[in-house]
Every structure is written in structure tokens, then in C-alpha cells.
């Protein structure tokens, strides 16, 4: 082959600004950021006094803080070439068990809130172990396993509550966390922001993240390289479940209730954010920062549609169509690559 005969010995890393810019331009995350900016510019021009206001943007960030948390976990799982459809239902179940635990210990103080937090995280972890076990040990495809656990979790949430939302949440939790601010930043936004930064760092800079990419890139190669791929898969489901558990806790804090049927579209919104952000459906490539940007495309869209007084359910229609389009683009890219 021609390229081989004229190859030169290893070229030192050309880690200049230029190379960085070029790779950014090529990346999906850059495309997504550009799309987001265009969308925002569009709505700013359309509604100069309503869209680009501190109040509106802040609400947008708060509204989608939960989706961002779900997206962080989902990014990890999808980078390993697995799915987790159960995150929205896990969120709901975690919030129910969180309230149950707080009712059980009673009280209105921080210790009660901490018990609630522990219960939501543990619920998420438990669903993750369940998912991971079925995927790894019984080798059921992850899309089916998590479709099953989605229904198990949502069903259990209804069973435990008799279908009635629970409101027994300490005022402290709503006031300090749901509506709270730290240095002027709304606490839900802060929590999601920290999750994004930590998640991005772990996925791109640590051994755990590297092994996650390798697992999604070539599972057999990862196994042959001595990586315990089964344990890693379970860990990834636990991570995703715990992100959903944390999102459940934050949802309780924001709304002061369990919002039993308020999260049925959370998964698809998070999924759209993840794939828009540049995480491949085929594994091996994932970016948490991309997800954090990607989630706000459906976010801005829905916000803008409401400002335009379009019936908000149109948002779902658009999300579904965009999802298909983005996945198709991913597919085309993958086919070109594999030729």
C-alpha cells in the first residue's frame, strides 16, 4: 500500500492549537454546540425580551438538571456499547423509596435528608446491579433487560404508593436543595454541573474511563487485555443507576413530591442529548461534556416552542424525529469508517 511505503517513523505529537481546533471542528460535540447556539440565536431574535433572560435561562438549566444527571450515567453505559432504558423509571422508584425511608426515620432535619439521599442512591445502585447481573450473567441483550427493569421499577413505584404521589418531604430539603442557591447558583444546577465535570474527567482521564471505551470499542480485545469486562459492565450499570437515584433525590427536592408519572419522557430526552453530544450508539466513543450540551437542544427547543405558544407536546414529536436523524448520521459515519 502506498501510504505504508512513504510512511515516516513516528511523527511526534502535533499537539498544537491548530490540531485541537481541527479535531474540534470534526467532532460531533462541536456540531452540537453550534446547533445549540444557532437555536438560541433564533429564539433570541424571535423573542428578544423573553428568551435570553437570566430568568429564562436559569429556569431552563434547572428544568433540565435532572436530565443532565441521567445523561451522565447513560453516556458511560452507552460508551461501553450497552443500553439503559430504565433510568427514568429508576428515578421514580428511587424517589418513592427515598420518601419511604425519610418517613420511616421521621424528623425534619439534615439527618433525615441524608437518609433520603442514601435511600435514593441505594435504590439506583440496586437497579444497576439487577441490570448488570442479567446482562452479564444471563447474557440477555441490555435493551431487553432494561426494558424489563423499566417496567419493574415503574410498577414497583406504583405498587408502593398505590398510585398516589407522596409528599412527606422535609421542608429543609425543598428550601435548601430544591430551591437553594450556592454563590448564586441554583443548587440543582450546581449538582448537575459537578456531576458533569466529574463524569467528564473520569471518562476521559482515568483508567476506569479508558476501560469503558475499550469495552465498547472491542469487548473481546478488552477481555484479552486482561480487563474484567463482566465486573466493569456491572459497575457501569450501578453508576448509571446511581445517577438516576441522585436525579430522583433532586426531583424530590425540587417538587416536594414523588412525581410518579412525570418522567416517562426523561429517557428519550437524555438519550437524544447523549447521541447529539457525540457518544456513539455503537460504543467506544463517549463524551460527557457533549452530553451536557446535547441535552439542551431538546431543552431550548421545548422552551422556545412554549414561547411560540406551540402546543408543547410537539416537542415529543420533534425529539423522536431528531433522534432518528442523529442515529442515522451515526450509522452512516460508522459504515464509512468500517469500509
Amino acid at each position: 500500500m502506498a501510504d505504508q511505503s512513504q510512511a515516516v517513523p513516528v511523527v511526534p505529537a502535533r499537539a498544537g492549537i491548530g490540531a485541537l481546533l481541527r479535531s474540534m471542528l470534526r467532532s460531533q460535540a462541536a456540531m452540537t454546540t453550534a446547533t445549540l447556539l444557532v437555536l438560541m440565536a433564533f429564539f433570541t431574535v424571535l423573542f428578544p425580551s423573553k428568551f435570553l433572560t437570566v430568568f429564562n435561562i436559569q429556569n431552563l438549566l434547572i428544568d433540565y438538571s435532572g436530565i443532565v444527571l441521567l445523561g451522565v450515567g447513560l453516556t458511560f453505559v452507552m460508551t461501553s456499547e450497552c443500553f439503559d432504558l430504565s433510568i427514568g423509571a429508576t428515578l421514580v422508584l428511587a424517589s418513592v423509596l427515598g420518601v419511604e425511608a425519610m418517613v420511616l426515620v421521621g424528623g425534619e432535619g439534615w439527618s433525615t435528608v441524608l437518609v433520603g439521599l442514601a435511600a435514593t442512591l441505594l435504590t439506583g445502585a440496586a437497579v444497576g446491579v439487577f441490570n448488570g447481573f442479567l446482562v452479564v450473567n444471563l447474557r440477555i441483550p441490555s435493551i431487553i433487560v432494561t426494558l424489563g427493569s423499566l417496567n419493574v421499577a415503574q410498577g414497583l413505584a406504583y405498587v408502593l404508593t398505590g398510585g398516589q404521589d407522596m409528599h412527606e418531604i422535609p421542608n429543609l430539603m425543598v428550601d435548601s436543595i430544591g430551591l437553594g442557591r450556592v454563590l448564586g447558583i441554583p443548587a440543582p444546577v450546581l449538582v448537575s454541573g459537578i456531576a458533569v465535570i466529574v463524569g467528564a474527567f473520569v471518562l476521559s482521564q482515568t483508567r476506569f474511563g479508558r476501560h469503558t471505551c475499550a469495552l465498547g470499542s472491542n469487548k473481546e480485545a478488552a477481555r484479552r487485555a486482561g480487563i474484567d469486562v463482566n465486573r466493569l459492565s456491572i459497575q457501569l450499570y450501578v453508576l448509571s443507576g446511581m445517577c438516576a437515584g441522585l436525579a430522583g433525590f433532586m426531583s424530590l427536592a425540587r417538587f416536594g413530591t414523588t412525581t410518579l408519572s412525570g418522567h416517562s419522557t426523561d429517557f428519550i430526552t437524555a438519550l437524544l442529548g447523549v447521541v447529539l453530544g457525540g457518544t456513539s450508539l455503537f460504543g467506544g466513543v463517549g463524551t460527557v461534556l457533549g452530553t451536557a450540551v446535547g441535552v439542551f437542544i431538546p431543552g431550548v427547543l421545548s422552551n422556545g416552542l412554549i414561547l411560540m405558544s406551540v402546543f408543547p407536546y410537539w416537542q415529543l414529536v420533534i425529539v423522536g424525529l431528531v433522534l432518528c436523524a442523529v442515529v442515522y448520521a451515526d450509522l452512516v459515519k460508522r459504515r464509512q469508517r468500517d469500509d
Partner: peptide
């Protein structure tokens, strides 16, 4: 048995990654 989405160094050290010493290494960086 290469991981196509990693670079050559990533493949060379797959499963035998070099970590930073100290706290960062303990964190798996």
C-alpha cells in the same frame, strides 16, 4: 484484538495503563 477507537499508545498499554504517582494515581488518573 485492537480497540479501534483508541490510539496506538492506548492499545499498547491497554490493561497495563501507567497512572500518575501519588493521589492522582490512586484516583486512577
Amino acid at each position: 484484538a485492537l480497540a479501534p477507537d483508541l490510539d496506538p499508545a492506548g492499545n499498547l498499554f491497554l490493561g497495563k495503563e501507567i497512572l500518575y504517582p501519588g493521589l492522582l494515581g490512586w484516583l486512577g488518573v
